[in-house]
Design a protein around this nucleic acid. Structure first.
Lengths: 228, 228
DNA sequence: ACAAAAAATGCTGCATACAGAATACAAAAG
DNA sequence: CTTTTGTATTCTGTATGCAGCATTTTTTGT
C-alpha cells in the first residue's frame, strides 16, 4: 500500500539535510507514475477523498498536484466533477508521434553541431548498454534505456525549450508505449535503426541522423498502433 | 483594482444563472494575462496572501492556479519560498523561436493537405483584416490578428498535439513580443512575409508555405532580440 | 408497473486555521 | 564598525470544515 512514509522519502535516497521537496511536488511524480504504469487507467476519476486517504495525504496538496498534471495534459479537469485520467485516441497518439518526429529531426540536426565528443561518447555508452539489455531480452531496461537515448540526443541540441517539450510528449506517450509489446522482428528493426542513429551521430552526419530519427518515429506508429 | 466581481463574471459575458467556471480556472487566465501584459514582471514573487487579497480570493484556488501556470512554464516553483514569474534569457527566447519555427513549418506542410477551401478563406479574411489594421497603424489589433493567423494555420493542420504545444509556446513568447516594438521597415517586412504566406496557402504550395513560415520565424528573432 | 419528481448522499470547490520554514531585524560579541 | 547569533515576523505548506452542485435513490402519482 502506498503510504505517506514512502512518499516523503527523498527520491534519490540520500540522507540530505532536510526534506526540501514539497508534498504536492512528490505527489505530481507519484501520480504521473501511477498513470503511466496503468495503476490509474484512462477514464478513471481521481477521487480526492479516496485517493488522498489511500496515499495518506490531505486533499489540498493532492488537488494542487492534479492541477499541475492537468496542465501537463495527463488528466482532464471537469468543472464541478473533478479530474479524470485523459484518454488518448489513436489519432491523438498519431498526432503526438508526428510532432515528436519533427522535434527529434530538429534535435538531430542541432546535435551534430553542438555536441562535444565526450557527450557523444556518453550516448554511445547508453546505446551499448541498451544493446546488452536487448540481447538479454530485458524489455523493461531496454525500454528505459531507449527513452534515455532519445532524451540524451535531444539534450545534445542544447535547446531548453526543445528539451522541455520533448519531455512532455515523451511523458504523454510513455503510457502507450509502456503497454505496446511489439514482436521480435519489429523489435529487431528498431534496434537496427538505433545502430544507424549512433553511427550518424558519431559521424556528425546531420542529414543522416535527422533522417533516421524521423524514420524511427515514423515506424514507431506501426509498432504501437496495433495495441490501440 | 481587480476584484472578485470581475473575476467571477463569466468570460463570455452571458448572464447565465450559474457560474460554471471554477475560480482556479478563472485565476489561471487572469494571472496569465497579468504576466503577459507585464503587470507581473519577471522575477516578481507571487505573494499568496497579498495577491489573494488584491484579487479578492482566498489562497487555495490561487495556489492551484499557480501550480497550473508552473506546469505551463510561466512561473517557477521554489520549495518553501513560493512562486516567481519566470525570467527568460535571450537564449531561451531564441530556443523557443527555433522550436516554434520547426512546428509551424510542419503545420504549413500539413495544412496544405488537410485544409478545406472554406477554412483557407477564413484565414484570408483574418489576413485582410490584419492588413487593414496595419494600414491604420493599429499595433495592438495588428499584433492580435497576427497571432490569430498563425494559430489558425496551425489549426488547419488538424493535429491536436501540434495545436496544444504551439499555443503553449505562443503564450510563453507573447510577453516578449508584446514588448518588442519593431521599427516601420521591419514591420513592413513582416507584413510582406504574411502576404507570401497567404498566397502559398491559397495555392496549397506545401514547400512554399513551409519555407515562408520558417523564414518568417527566423526573422522574428531579429525583430525581438533588440528588446532583450 | 412505470415515470417523474423529490429527497438524500457524496463529492468538489472554496475558505479558513494551524504548523513549520525562511527571512529580516536586532542585539551582543569580537 | 563588522560579524554573528538569537529572536520575531512573515510567508509557505498542509489539514480541516462548510457550502453548493451532481448523481443516485426513493417516493409518489398516474
Amino acid at each position: 500500500m502506498d503510504e505517506i512514509s514512502s512518499l516523503q522519502r527523498r527520491a534519490d535516497g540520500t540522507a540530505g539535510p532536510i526534506r526540501r521537496t514539497a508534498l504536492h511536488d512528490t505527489l505530481v511524480n507519484h501520480l504521473r507514475d501511477m498513470i503511466i504504469e496503468g495503476d490509474l487507467e484512462p477514464g478513471t476519476r481521481l477521487h480526492e477523498g479516496q485517493l488522498g486517504e489511500q496515499l495518506g495525504v490531505s486533499r489540498t496538496p493532492l488537488r494542487e498536484a492534479i492541477k499541475y498534471l492537468a496542465s501537463e495534459g495527463l488528466v482532464e479537469l471537469v468543472p464541478s466533477r473533478g479530474a479524470v485520467v485523459k484518454r488518448f485516441s489513436p489519432k491523438d497518439v498519431h498526432d503526438m508521434l508526428t510532432v515528436l518526429r519533427t522535434l527529434e529531426e530538429l534535435a538531430g540536426r542541432l546535435a551534430c553541431d553542438t555536441a562535444s565528443d565526450a557527450e557523444i561518447a556518453q550516448v554511445r555508452a547508453l546505446h551499448d548498454e541498451m544493446i546488452d539489455r536487448y540481447k538479454a531480452a530485458d524489455r523493461l531496461q531496454y525500454y528505459k534505456l531507449n527513452q534515455d537515448i532519445h532524451t540524451a540526443i535531444v539534450r545534445l541540441a542544447q535547446n531548453s525549450s526543445l528539451v522541455d517539450i520533448h519531455a512532455m510528449l515523451q511523458t504523454r506517450l510513455k503510457r502507450i508505449r509502456f503497454i505496446g509489446h511489439e514482436g521480435p522482428e519489429k523489435w529487431a528493426a528498431a534496434v537496427r535503426e538505433h545502430e544507424e542513429m549512433i553511427a550518424a551521430l558519431e559521424a556528425r552526419d546531420k542529414a543522416g541522423l535527422s533522417e533516421v530519427l524521423g524514420r524511427h518515429l515514423f515506424n514507431a506508429w506501426d509498432r504501437v498502433k496495433a495495441s490501440l
